[in-house]
């Protein structure tokens, strides 16, 4: 399963709930969800375990639009573009949106 979270973890529990149900699935942060990828935040600690296993991704264009430099992204979180988003859905789908 490829899960996406599109809300800031400081605003809603979507990321926390997604991580609690991630199992061996993969997580992509998009839209306002990308704020969860910033190193040193509480959210980054929550996703550290799956990130260390290479199962957490963040959408680069959404980072750039929001002024979040890729160098500030937490360890293990991989930056992908929209083509990468498509490949994640293709390889690890179905897709579940935590909206």
């Amino acid at each position: 399963m490829l899960h996406t979270v599109n809300k800031s973890p400081m605003q809603t529990n979507d990321l926390a709930s997604c991580l609690a149900h991630l199992g061996d699935g993969r997580l992509l942060l998009i839209e306002d969800g990308v704020y969860g990828a910033i190193a040193g935040t509480g959210a980054a600690k929550q996703l550290a375990a799956p990130a260390s296993e290479g199962r957490v991704y963040v959408l680069g264009p959404d980072l750039e639009a929001r002024g979040v430099d890729q160098s500030t992204v937490a360890d293990g979180v991989q930056v992908v573009d929209y083509n990468g988003f498509v490949r994640l859905v293709a390889e690890h789908g179905p897709h579940q949106a935590w909206v």
Partner: peptide
């Protein structure tokens, strides 16, 4: 909301990827 923009960019990328 960004949803329609995200969907558009995703769709374009999916077509580019040959889907």
């Amino acid at each position: 909301h960004q949803a329609s923009d995200s969907a558009y960019l995703f769709t374009k990328a999916a077509l580019e990827e040959g889907h």
